[in-house]
Design a protein around this nucleic acid. Structure first.
Lengths: 216, 216
DNA sequence: GGGTGTGAAGGGATTCACAGCA
DNA sequence: TGCTGTGAATCCCTTCACACCC
């Protein structure tokens, strides 16, 4: 296994393993088998082993994986070890919730700047971050922030995204429900809660009635 | 094409098409081609045509799709037409943001009940919803609510989920970062923002350095 | 002409089954 | 014995190419 391309689907599962390993670590478990990891993450054991094998032999046959070693390894792969600074734009309901949310820290993310255009919001301090006028976005360049979080309304999102990129951002977490048109070297992760929600009725029990389509 | 199983991946894309169609409708477009739909949704035209073909011949050769007809059809498939009532448990930062969020309405979801265990929060009214004591969750059964939204801390999520199911809920939107162990007939959609966020550093430009692993 | 609908081909991810090693 | 690591087989989804129809 040399110079192996890692499937995107595998990468998507890594944070899940990471979360499960932290959980096991907290329980004081020093070792974990793919079966046990499966019990927590609900991914098949062979899928887990296959996924992990892309990164070399991380386990010990007959024993399993060392909890701490494995979680460090996954952290290295995902580059979650160490802290990354982020700027948030749009301090509405969601923006405020994210600012107050402490869970980002364990993923190495720290929001150290926030912007809004509402004068009632500007100047407020939430969770040690003072909200700036959005017009000062371009001054962000100095602070070497590479991650931006967009929580502005849909109509303003594209414009804000461009300004963030101009300010040196190359990774964006986008909560606005639209596709952001940006240079290829910018990574965008879209989170649209409503889009996920929309799947719920389809998969709810009534599905048994009409899961298959009778066509033509 | 008879009795054809619809791929999950196709279902996942339907809300995206639905969103794009609403956008086009708002622009006053009565017809749309798969190419145009692709421009907005950033899904390949042939993928779109394939996806839609699972539901029968919805388009007109040489013309494209009727915007309104198609969006209604997708709404029917996803069961988004009509309103579904939901109960939210855990009125913290995120819970409040969701209560105030108006975007659910267009997906046919209306939060009509909210619960918390914090006595400072109980009794407050947010967006016309008065927050109840979480101990009253079991009384929910009468109100025929089938969707539950969980925004409580991880440690309480499993317990709350079980109570929701006891109260008649069969579809859950779970924001707590853990796997909910529930009867098979309950549909759970998990949203863990941090899990998505964790992928950002991996895909950010520095990836060019170590995207592939040099093993063994 | 222009754009859909769809079998067939191709590609990738999942699953299997077992070799290999503590 | 127990559990990992991994080629091979399988399955499913994506992509292609073109027939078909407005």
């Amino acid at each position: 296994m040399r110079y192996h391309k890692i499937p995107d689907e595998t990468v998507k599962r890594l944070p899940l393993y990471w979360r499960a390993l932290k959980f096991m670590s907290a329980q004081g478990e020093t070792h974990i088998s793919s079966q046990k990891l499966s019990d927590i993450s609900h991914i098949n054991p062979w899928q887990i082993r296959k996924d992990l094998s892309y990164f070399g032999a991380l386990g010990v046959r007959g024993i399993g994986y060392k909890t701490k070693k494995l979680s460090e390894k996954i952290g290295d792969i995902l580059r979650l070890n160490g802290t990354q600074k982020a700027a948030l734009v749009g301090v509405g309901n969601l923006g405020q919730a994210l600012l107050k949310y402490s869970g980002f820290k364990s993923y190495g993310l720290e929001i150290i700047a926030a912007f809004d255009k509402n004068h009632k919001t500007i100047g407020k301090t939430i969770n040690q971050v003072t909200i700036d006028n959005i017009s000062k976005l371009r001054e962000l360049k100095r602070s070497k922030i590479h991650i931006g979080i967009i929580t502005v309304p849909e109509a303003e999102a594209q414009e804000v995204a461009v300004e963030l990129v101009n300010a040196g951002v190359c990774g964006i977490l986008n909560f606005a429900p639209l596709y952001l048109d940006l240079p290829k070297n910018v990574t965008v992760i879209n989170i649209d809660i409503a889009l996920d929600l929309a799947l719920l009725p389809y998969y709810m029990p009534a599905k048994l009635v009409a899961r298959r389509y009778i066509g033509k």
